[in-house]
Write a protein that binds this DNA or RNA. Structure first.
Lengths: 200, 200
DNA sequence: AGCCACAAGCTAATAGCCTTAGCTTTTGGG
DNA sequence: CCCAAAAGCTAAGGCTATTAGCTTGTGGCT
């Protein structure tokens, strides 16, 4: 009998496809094994059990999201950059709801690789807000506010938390525009202009 | 042997306590049964399986959150009301992280009771924003924005998404104050704002 | 007070999942 | 061409939920 030719990468990608289709709760070794036509224990040759698989998928999602955000922001600055990043953020969550949900689990303190990858989206947002003159001590707060707004909207939306389906695009646009104005009037932004980028 | 004296209410409350202590993932019929010193199938006399238990806990959380928000808002208006509600929202999520996580699952379309209870928090937020002159078609968008900001912050925070623990209170305050300003300058709210103070 | 029907709790059994142990077989490099 | 490591397998054990059907406590009615 021929081998399936698995690899950690392939397993994680198939799992990601599974949860994008069926939701994060559908993630199980059994379901992934079935997709490959393979026995469940075989997956242990490529992935550290269910916990390991979850980690891989989260990493994959974080890397993809970081890349999308970076791409969206390149060549733009100020409000345009913020709008582009916000749109890319939501677009990713729509295209890959399972991955997006999976990457919300914070990595362990000792998992340096995961922490590094998870930091990329935050770095992009930090850079975008730096273009508004928000840096130094205020950067942390502003980035947290931005992440809250984007994640909160997308999370509620993908969970079906918005009962009326019609105006969701408009709602998001208003949220983003409101945030643009808020960030333009950010308190103490002028004095903090000389600060450096810090992790939030 | 004496009976345990369970009831749907007691079971849901014990489950809520469990997940506040150990996280939503720790919710299982087995864990709840153990807490009561009871066999697992006994719980089926009070709750419709695991899915039913989850629903009960979500309902409990939504009812509690709605009540807290209402209480926080009473007697206040405008920015003060918004600040009070925002503080109560985060306070509830801190005090009951498991319940808060549980109530994020949207109820089914046919579950009228759950939909009604889940609507209470939204109603309170809507009322608070109405105090800013935001009503009509804009209300939906503004409430969504507010929910996104509050939920996003609290969700990221309780998931450990904010790496630096020190300034989280300040971050939230800045987010809320930013939202207060955003809502004071909300577009298209002018016509509905006849009765409130507005800088010209 | 006593009885009895119903509710509350139990045991047994089934099915699905994850995990570890240990075996077989493919496969690619020397 | 061979053979060791990697890839996949079966077997087994433990956890979970769920259903079926039994036993027993208890409150209400006479």
């Amino acid at each position: 009998m021929p081998r399936a030719g698995l690899s950690p990468r392939l397993v994680a990608e198939e799992a990601a496809r599974l949860i994008d289709e069926q939701g994060l709760d559908a993630l199980s070794l059994a379901a992934v094994a079935k997709r490959f036509g393979v026995a469940v224990p075989s997956l242990y040759k490529h992935v550290h059990g269910l916990a390991g698989l979850r980690r891989e998928v989260a990493l994959l999602g974080a890397a993809e999201l970081g890349e999308r955000l970076r791409t969206a922001a390149t060549g733009l600055a100020g409000p345009d950059a913020l709008r582009a990043v916000a749109a890319a953020y939501r677009r990713y969550a729509h295209a890959h709801p399972g991955r997006y949900a999976a990457l919300q689990r914070a990595p362990g303190d000792d998992d340096h690789e995961a922490r590094k990858v998870s930091a990329v989206p935050v770095e992009v947002l930090t850079a975008v807000l730096a273009g508004f003159g928000i840096g130094g001590g205020q950067a942390v707060h502003a980035v947290r506010a931005l992440r809250s707004a984007l994640h909160g909207f997308v999370d509620l939306e993908t969970r079906g938390g918005f009962g009326l389906p019609e105006d969701v695009d408009e709602s998001y646009e208003l949220l983003v525009e409101g945030f643009v104005r808020a960030v333009q009037n950010w308190p103490d932004a002028a004095s903090a202009r000389a600060g450096t980028v810090r992790p939030t």
